[in-house]
Design a protein around this nucleic acid. Sequence first.
DNA 1: GTAAAGTTAGACACCATTGTCTAATTCGTC
DNA 2: GACGAATTAGACAATGGTGTCTAACTTTAC
Lengths: 234, 234
Amino acid sequence: MKKPKVPQPKPGGPTQKGQCAKRVSILDAAAEVFCREGFAGASIDEIAMEACVSRQTVYNHYREKETLFMAVVQDILDRANAALFSILATFPDNGDNLEDELTAFAVRLNKNCVCNHDGKFIRKLVQTEGERYPHLFEIWREQGPGKIGTALAALFARLSHVARLEIDDFDLAAKQFLALVNADLQMISFFGGTPTDEELEKSARAAVRTFLRAYGRPPAREAGGVEELREETA
Amino acid sequence: MKKPKVPQPKPGGPTQKGQCAKRVSILDAAAEVFCREGFAGASIDEIAMEACVSRQTVYNHYREKETLFMAVVQDILDRANAALFSILATFPDNGDNLEDELTAFAVRLNKNCVCNHDGKFIRKLVQTEGERYPHLFEIWREQGPGKIGTALAALFARLSHVARLEIDDFDLAAKQFLALVNADLQMISFFGGTPTDEELEKSARAAVRTFLRAYGRPPAREAGGVEELREETA
DNA sequence: GTAAAGTTAGACACCATTGTCTAATTCGTC
DNA sequence: GACGAATTAGACAATGGTGTCTAACTTTAC
């Protein structure tokens, strides 16, 4: 009979370290191969080879290809979610130096959530396999851009209380902020290349400048100078 | 021996109509299946069935799977390119009613180039198979967003001569215009659903409003008349 | 050391797919 | 109607993938 070998990580259990190491090794390799070849194109042999593990071990840990695939998705989604929240926590909370702060935030967001390995994988995955696994598409929309959108909207609402921002629709503003921030990055990170730090910075600053031109109130007129934001190169 | 049966469309040749019809039928079906299943997941049998054609006929027209795939790509790329140019030709060329004109243009662009069948296919294709066929990725970047970006930049430059626009970097503005215009559509058209006309309109208007808030000069203040460049076509 | 668990390579049946081949059939044109 | 070209269904070998099994091997816990 088949012994159900599903190895659940028992805390302090025996051989846990070795097993666990293999598990993540398989998971990483599988993510790599699934991302490169798609679900249909990926072969278990290839994954096993890339993980430096025998094919049988793969089958021992994850009953079949489908199971492995789902585990990979879950894993990446969790990681990406954690990264997203840790970055959202750094959203500026005061109006000082708005352009610099928002730019730095946008860079962090792009670097750790959008242009990184996991972000690329998720986007590719959803696009390639979303049709075949509608469930996958749904949880992505809930946990991914949906969550980031509403969270950002709330943050902009908070920020608008203490900064010179004139936003009537926070959801829309959040979406547009994201769109601007990803304007060129999306394409750059489409293929292999990860954008350099300079590219990230430049792109983020351009996006934030435009965003603030649209949504930023000009600095108080009472000071006399009708100095517009866009003319500050003087 | 093998007779090279590559059927080239001879102008006025015999049985051309039937052949041609089958060719496009195969091409369409192949596009559908490749898009749905990816290159690896698509089977020639499935394509043949969907095209209402025998498998052998597929092999008669396109020697092998790879050839068929390339033909599909070329076909879609050509069609998409033609559509893109025909839409770009409708870019507003005067400053009257800028918001409405730009909104209508954005709607046309999205409807005919971004959210339509071909647009979706190309994006999916590039993302799934771009790594395997770097050539594909290159010609897409040249003919796709690259071309659209520079073309739009030129159009904005033209427009800025006759409209209240304050753009210093036309390339950047074009990219940001596209980004804003696609802010929510991208996601909607990610999965099956094509956005409705109302969604298209609403999304385009929001994008254009933000774009004009960032790049539009405010209409002349009635009293102080900042009308130095007011060449408005009555 | 020993025993139990996990791992490995390899063989295996099974299935889907590609691409070829053939013989029968249909289609378009004269 | 007759001819040639295109199309069709089906059989076919070859390939490569999945998932199972087994027998040897290694690691880990005690």
